[in-house]
Design a protein around this nucleic acid. Structure first.
Length: 496
DNA sequence: AAAAAAC
């Protein structure tokens, strides 16, 4: 196995030196690209030679262009302008773990290939299949996909993978974590054995190595940063607060940054979907431009939120780990961990959203004593200590903390209101979250809890979010009950 | 423990 390793210094080369087609160079010029990033400098020549690649690259290293540009180059001689699917078989397949990442990879591919005749499209779940099917039937050379939806299309015979010459497994570690291995195996079995395979992963775990050894041939290993090590441009700080003061602490941090004239944009990571929506609401009440993104949001909402964030209409993107990896959000000045992640590797991915391409960044974590073990695991993985710092000027008994306390009271009052003979307060609609108040929890709706929510009114319809209502009913951090609701309410008879 | 991903 050949191994190439560099540090973060950009080699003194330009995109001209790769001998890319004029049509690609024109697209690059239009994007304002002149100097390749380290991973591009290493990957592009290797991919152009047709070699398999095992790439360790974090998000934000320019990885996508690193594989997309040479792939487009290699496909060019085969492209033609005829509009029949038979003449536009899928020749390059790019698989990603999440829908957003698929969309972003596609977006890049389409931009780099825009002056060529190559066609590309993207397929992922959560949206109507028909437009995807039509695009596939018209024929594309480059297909970006999430595994599940791709197999769906394969089953419906709307795509044929027998002509694929280049396969990209992007964020392969993530795909394995998410249990995509069987899907990946099924997909790869549909591809010709004679092909070029590129595998990118943030870490080279034993599983990744096993995957590589079964599907890659004499891969060239490309590594731009030591895996499992966080970027040195990122200032990591852990703020220790008392349990129950986390929301107030985040508000304090965000307002402090704004007051210090630092960029207001940041991603705030939360471990649960409930906590994610809850924190976003809380920040909004505190006058911070915030929005939640997590897996219970519709695909449309997720894309709109991401767009709003990229355009600067949203300052604080409150996210679950849906956003930890892959999402290509340029130049994040700051990442905040509202919760420390359950796995130390996720910590690396989360803070990898900042301090990219040589920029400096802040990774701030809220730490409560109960999370000691999580922090120790992170320190072990990073092989360094992260000092616990008191939060300067933070007054947990001040206005912020009072707001947090009132939120807890509100949550408890929702439970009282939910009782059939409810001695609860006046209903108080939640500001900034019409869906949640419209779908306020009603015990007579109980079946609601025993089956998953099925959308009925199209993408634009309000989302009666089961977990949201749970949050409202049961307060902070409680998991959705597995028992019937009546049992939880203490023997209130259940209508059926 | 949690999140993500196909219908």
């Amino acid at each position: 196995m050949t191994t190439t390793t560099t540090d973060q210094t950009t080699p003194e080369i330009t995109f001209d030196s790769f001998g890319l087609d004029a049509r690609i160079q024109r697209a690059l010029a239009e994007q304002g690209y002149t100097k390749p990033t380290p991973i591009q400098a290493q990957a592009i020549p290797v991919v152009l030679l047709g070699k398999d690649v095992m790439g360790a690259a974090q998000t934000g290293t320019g990885k996508t262009a690193g594989f997309a540009l040479p792939i487009i180059q290699r496909l060019l001689p085969m492209s033609n302008a005829s509009a029949s699917p038979a003449r536009h078989p899928v020749r390059a397949l790019m698989l990603t773990p999440t829908r957003e990442l698929a969309d972003q990879v596609y977006d890049n591919v389409a931009r780099y290939a825009r002056f060529t005749d190559l066609r590309s499209t993207v397929v992922f779940g959560g949206v109507d299949m028909n437009p995807q099917t039509e695009a596939l039937r018209r024929g594309v050379e480059i297909l970006v996909a999430t595994p599940g939806r791709l197999l769906d299309h394969v089953q419906q015979k709307s795509v044929n993978l027998s002509q694929v010459q280049m396969l990209v497994l992007d964020e392969a570690d993530r795909m394995l974590d998410m249990g995509f291995l069987p899907d990946l195996q099924r997909i790869i079995n549909l591809l010709p054995a004679q092909r070029q395979t590129l595998l990118f992963s943030a870490t080279f775990s034993a599983e990744i190595k096993r995957l590589a050894s079964s599907y890659l041939r004499q891969p060239v290993t490309i590594e731009v940063a030591r895996s499992n090590s966080a970027n040195e441009n990122v200032r990591q700080t852990v703020f220790q607060v008392e349990d129950g003061h986390k929301q107030a602490a985040v508000v304090h941090l965000l307002k402090k940054r704004a007051a210090d004239g630092l960029s207001r944009q940041c991603i705030v990571f939360v471990n649960s979907k409930i906590g994610c929506s809850r924190l976003a609401r809380h920040l909004e009440r505190e006058g911070i431009n915030a929005a939640a993104i997590h897996g219970d949001k519709t695909q449309t909402e997720r894309m709109q939120t991401l767009d709003g964030f990229k355009q600067g209409n949203i300052d604080a993107l409150v996210a679950t780990d849906v956003a930890a990896r892959g999402l290509d959000i340029p130049d994040m000045p700051c990442v905040i961990n509202f919760d420390l992640p359950y796995s130390a590797e996720d910590y690396v991915h989360r803070i990898g959203r900042t301090g990219r391409a040589g920029a400096s960044g802040d990774a701030l974590s809220i730490f409560v004593p109960a999370d000691e073990r999580l922090l120790v695991d992170i320190e072990k993985l990073l092989k360094r200590n992260i000092p616990r710092t008191p939060l300067e000027g933070f007054d947990p008994t001040g206005a912020n903390a009072r707001a947090e306390e009132s939120e807890r009271r509100r949550a408890r009052s929702d439970v009282r209101r939910a009782r059939p003979n409810g001695e609860g307060d006046e209903p108080r609609p939640r500001r900034n979250d019409p869906a949640s108040s419209r779908n306020a929890f009603r015990p007579s709706d109980d079946p609601f809890f025993s089956r998953p929510y099925e959308p009925s009114g199209g993408a634009a319809a309000a989302q009666p979010d089961v977990t949201e209502s749970h949050a409202a009913a049961f307060g902070r951090g409680r998991p959705a009950p597995k028992r019937p609701l009546a049992a939880l309410l203490g023997g209130v008879p259940r209508k059926s």
